[in-house]
Simulated scan of single mutants.
Amino acid sequence: MELAPPTADECQVWRLPIGAEHWRDFDVLDEGERARHRRFRRSADRDRYQAAHVGVRLLLGHYLGVHPAELRFSRHCRHCGAGHGKPTVAYPATKWEFSVTHSGDWVAVAVASVPVGLDVQETTDGTDVVALSTAVLSPAELRWWRERPAEDARRAFFGYWARKEALLKATGHGLAVPMNTVTLSPPEEPARLVDWAADRPLDGPAQLSDLDAGPGYTAAVALLSPLPVRITRAELPLGVIAAAHTSAG
């Protein structure tokens, strides 16, 4: 099987396997990543972190033709220049952008040649959605949301949340833009941006798509591009990367 990078009109979304047994042969994390991995107290958190950070290094290293341990990442914010922006590849030089997400049993990475944001939300955890609703939902969204039955409202809340997280990851704004200043279409409709009322500008036309992450999850991907971008999804073929990693070593 050939594992090729995305074409100019494609966004690849790869689901990564969780569990130390999948990653123990790949010693590719830098010292900072190893230190953060050790600080997690719960094994589930350590496993998700390991899958996300080892997985993205293996995938991007494979695409860029470098050893995964040689990759260097930056958080330079393209809006203000500070060090809190979305992660990008600082070395080697590349046009590829990526976004990583993890929640519950899901860890995934999206790769595209345009700014991309990926988010998965577990809907069955103990999150108090009523308490968070005014911080996450815009006034127009709140009016619609408060008319939903309780169970529908819970899933709708996480549908909004996943879409907004994906969008703010793609723009690189993150927490600098309050979620309640962004209005999206209701989760029962195709995903689209309705209004951007944030003080900070939107970089370009935003494309939003929902992803089927299975029962108990909502997921979305956002892309900043004036041209259509198709989304492909698959399980990461770790065996292909492992073979290439071994031969390169």
Rank of each mutant, 00 (worst) to 15 (best):
E31S: 08
E189W: 01
V177E: 12
P6M: 15
A35W: 04
Y160M: 07
W23L: 08
A35Q: 14
E189D: 05
A248M: 02
F157E: 13
R34I: 00
K86S: 09
F98M: 12
E188I: 03
R24I: 10
K164F: 02
A213E: 07
H37Q: 12
Y217M: 00
R155Y: 05
F40E: 06
K169I: 04
V129D: 03
L184Q: 12
V177K: 13
T246G: 09
D25Y: 09
G249L: 01
W145D: 08
A4D: 08
K95V: 10
S113G: 12
L60I: 08
T183K: 14
F158T: 02
G85P: 12
M179S: 11
V194Q: 01
R72F: 07
G214W: 10
F26T: 02
R36Y: 00
L227T: 12
S225M: 13
R15D: 04
D152T: 10
R41N: 00
I241M: 15
Y217F: 04
T124K: 15
P228R: 11
Y91C: 03
P228S: 14
F98W: 10
S113N: 14
R39M: 07
K95M: 08
L3G: 07
Q12E: 09
V114W: 11
A244Y: 00
V182H: 15
V229N: 04
D125N: 15
T171P: 07
P87V: 02
F157M: 13
G174D: 07
V66W: 00
A206V: 15
H102W: 08
S113P: 03
V229C: 10
